[in-house]
Amino acid sequence: MKVRLLWLPLALAACSPSPAPPAAPSPSATATPAPGAAAIDASVLPQYHWRLSDATDSAGKRIDALFIRADKPLSLDFSANRLNVVNSCNSITGSYSISDGQIEIGQMAHTLMACPDPALASLDDAISQRLQGKLKVTLQTGEASPRLQLVAANGDTLTFVGEPTAETRYGGPGETIFLEVSAQTVPCSHPLIPDKQCLNVRERHFDEHGLQTGTPGEWQPLNQPIEGYTHEPGIRNVLRIKRFAIKNPPADAPNTAYVLDMVVESEKVAQ
Rank of each mutant, 00 (worst) to 15 (best):
K61A: 14
V201A: 02
G172E: 01
L192V: 11
R240S: 04
I193C: 07
L222D: 04
Q220Y: 13
S145D: 12
P9C: 03
A251R: 06
V3D: 07
I235L: 15
D57W: 05
F67R: 02
D195M: 13
E208A: 14
D57R: 08
T213W: 11
A270T: 14
L74C: 04
K136Y: 04
R147W: 04
K247D: 09
N81L: 08
S266T: 14
Q132K: 12
T56D: 02
S91C: 05
P21V: 09
P164F: 05
V137P: 00
L260Y: 06
N90A: 10
L211R: 14
G106N: 10
L179D: 00
C89S: 09
E208M: 12
K72E: 11
P22E: 11
A59Q: 14
E265F: 11
A153G: 09
S43T: 12
A20F: 08
K134D: 01
G171R: 02
K2Q: 13
D156S: 12
N200W: 12
K242P: 00
A55Q: 00
S75D: 06
P250F: 10
I105N: 00
S128R: 13
T138F: 05
V3E: 06
N223H: 10
G174M: 04
A39M: 09
L10Y: 05
G36C: 04
S91I: 05
W50D: 00
L112N: 06
P33Y: 06
A20W: 09
S99W: 02
D41I: 03
H205R: 14
S26N: 09
T138K: 09
P191K: 07
R51P: 01
P233H: 07
G210W: 03
A144P: 03
L45P: 01
D156M: 06
S53F: 02
A257P: 03
S28C: 11
Q224Y: 12
Q271R: 13
A144C: 05
A153H: 10
R69H: 02
L192Q: 15
N154G: 02
A119Q: 15
I63H: 04
P73I: 05
H205L: 12
L131P: 00
M1K: 12
P221K: 10
P25N: 00
G106R: 11
D64V: 14
I246A: 04
S97P: 04
A153V: 11
Q271T: 14
D77N: 13
V269M: 10
A29W: 01
I177N: 01
G172A: 01
D207S: 13
C89D: 03
L120P: 02
S18G: 15
A119D: 15
V263R: 07
H205V: 07
C115W: 05
G94F: 05
A13I: 08
F244P: 00
R169F: 00
V269I: 15
G210R: 05
P146D: 02
M262I: 01
G217I: 13
I246M: 03
T185A: 11
